[in-house]
């Protein structure tokens, strides 16, 4: 068993879509990794490419998606490694789709089939992914529903999605995603549609389950507060680019990219009601008009000039494991080194 190894390694993920209006870049050269038992938070506003990135891991993007040849997505399981980009037939894909990787979607109402009971949907996937008999799959599904805190699990098992409340549906979704014992769980905005009180319940449930099952989680959200409470590592995306990455405490306490700083400043804070709310100026540009150079320069408050407008910034390190793609950091890193020498 590869204990110290990462569970998932994504390298140079670049994804474009062919559309009527031209070819658009949705994800641009993104690399990250997830270890077993680790929660990676993927943050960014709508249009930043976080969901598309997550779907790439299961090759769930629509037919007009074009992955660049440099893209590498490797899933390291106990006894073998799977190169997801090489999976072709839908039978091969089973390992990534519901086998070793499960996904929880944002809108639990839309992700359950409306005319099939919750129970039948749970049993169906167990029959595909395990060698359980129908009776065993049923028993195990009810156990899982009970495990995620659904009362009267055997009654709920026979109900349809519309009979459950939003929080309940999301719990059922989690139970379903976990029942195949995935190694990696992708949760795409799992709490966004929920009330804060229910959100808290779901967050705590997910944290407990990570501990219990030891799986890796990719938690996608636009809410930095949720990230702070769930993730171990954070990756911030903007317009398909990864712009800052690091341990959650480093990134939240010492945000180094102007965009991350802007996101944190834009959050209304309860401890200081007089603080003005500062928005990140401007809107996220259309993917058809991706700015050259640093993708954020059109909205950046500290943009340096020609360098930002024409050159794509490299990642530079601000602390161990905390990297930022910004010319400003590159420049100040050079300065710091000079100061340190003198």
């Amino acid at each position: 068993m590869n204990k110290n190894k990462n569970l998932l390694e994504v390298e140079n993920l670049t994804l474009q879509f062919d559309t009527d209006e031209g070819r658009i870049t949705a994800v641009d050269n993104v690399s990250f990794s997830v270890a077993p038992g680790e929660v990676l938070g993927l943050v960014g506003e709508s249009g930043s490419g976080k969901s598309v990135t997550a779907k790439s891991l299961m090759k769930l993007n629509p037919g007009n998606a074009i992955y660049s040849p440099e893209t590498k997505i490797n899933l390291h399981l106990e006894n073998r490694s799977v190169d997801i980009m090489q999976l072709k037939s839908s039978k091969d894909m089973l390992v990534a789709r519901g086998g070793a990787i499960s996904m929880i979607f944002q809108e639990p109402m839309a992700s359950f089939a409306p005319a099939i009971t919750i129970g039948d949907q749970m049993v169906e996937q167990l029959l595909i992914h395990t060698d359980y008999s129908v009776a065993k799959a049923k028993k195990y599904s009810i156990e899982m529903l009970d495990r995620v805190g659904i009362s009267d699990a055997d009654k709920r098992f026979k109900q349809y999605a519309f009979e459950l409340s939003g929080g309940m549906r999301q719990r059922a979704m989690i139970a379903m995603a976990l029942s195949t014992k995935p190694k990696l769980l992708i949760a795409d905005e799992p709490t966004t549609a929920l009330d804060v009180t229910i959100q808290l319940q779901v967050i705590e449930l997910m944290k407990d389950l990570v501990k219990e099952f030891g799986m890796g989680i990719i938690f996608i959200t636009h809410d930095l507060g949720v990230i702070a409470q769930t993730a171990d590592k954070v990756a911030v995306m903007y317009l398909g680019k990864l712009i800052e990455q690091g341990a959650v405490r480093d990134v939240i306490r010492n945000p180094s990219h102007p965009y991350t700083q802007g996101l944190i400043a834009a959050l209304p804070k309860l401890d200081d009601l007089d603080a003005p709310l500062v928005a990140v100026a401007g809107d996220i540009p259309s993917p058809l008009e991706r700015p050259p150079g640093c993708v954020f320069h059109t909205r950046c408050p500290v943009e340096l000039g020609a360098q930002c407008r024409s050159m794509v910034p490299d990642f530079s390190s601000v602390a161990s494991g905390h990297t930022v793609a910004c010319h400003l950091i590159e420049a100040s890193n050079v300065l710091d080194k000079k100061v340190a020498v003198s």
Binding site: E204, A228, Q229, R249, I264, L267
Partner: peptide
């Protein structure tokens, strides 16, 4: 009080301090 407490804090060290409201 419970609603206020359930707002996710920006401080990762606050995990587990929120007052959880059971049920719906």
């Amino acid at each position: 009080k419970a609603l206020l407490s359930a707002i996710p804090s920006l401080d990762p060290d606050d995990y587990g301090k929120a007052e959880k409201l059971e049920g719906e």
